[in-house]
């Protein structure tokens, strides 16, 4: 484990985690809304936003799947040191993080069960950029409709069709994040 793994965490965990969680909560409650977060300085290529989400949410109780090129020693060490989260394949993951193409296929993740739909994975999708254009989102948390630059449409429509089962998504780019819960209807514009 090199020195980099030991740095890049929160300086004042209770306060920084509270602020970052509020951004994540707001994003999940208002699908498509873009929030800024700060606190984590994870090894490249993990974004500040994705790293911060992991610091806020992951711990020894939550297996994490590092998809594609994110599954590298410096990120594994950083994650283990700061969160204690065990690494996992797609099927056992509570959180999965990576670029869209590396995260696929979606049916490999836990969707929850009819008795416990909350026991489903949350995917953190690393993006080059995030903006309020592209797909049209409607549903809980959205007064009329909201735009969001999603990586595709059909996968999210299929995910919605399984409600109340399904995956929930965060999208991260730099310090920005947005969310798309399974309850959101997605249409191409």
């Amino acid at each position: 484990m090199d020195v980099q793994a030991l740095s890049g965490g929160f300086a004042d965990t209770p306060r920084e985690a509270a602020q970052a969680f509020r951004a994540a909560l707001t994003a999940m409650a208002r699908p498509g809304r873009i929030e800024d977060v700060a606190g984590a300085r994870p090894p490249a290529p993990l974004s500040v936003a994705a790293g911060t989400l992991l610091l806020v949410l992951a711990d020894p109780a939550t297996p994490v799947h590092l998809a594609g090129p994110l599954d590298r020693p410096e990120i594994r060490d950083w994650l283990r040191f700061h969160t204690g989260a065990p690494l996992s394949d797609r099927a056992g993951a509570v959180f999965a993080v990576g670029r869209w193409a590396d995260l696929l296929p979606l049916d490999a993740y836990s969707l929850g069960t009819p008795d416990y739909p909350d026991r489903s994975a949350t995917l953190i999708v690393e993006m080059d950029a995030l903006d309020a254009t592209g797909a049209r989102l409607t549903g809980p948390g959205i007064e009329t409709s909201h735009g969001l630059s999603l990586p595709e449409i059909s996968a999210f429509r299929a995910n919605r069709a399984r409600f109340p089962l399904g995956l929930d998504f965060f999208f991260t780019a730099g310090v920005r994040l947005a969310a798309l819960p399974r309850s959101t209807h997605v249409e191409a514009v």
Partner: peptide
């Protein structure tokens, strides 16, 4: 404990 509650809150928002 906060992390555990926060995870539950996000899932609760996802399945209103």
């Amino acid at each position: 404990t906060k992390r555990m509650i926060r995870r539950a809150l996000l899932k609760a928002l996802a399945v209103p």
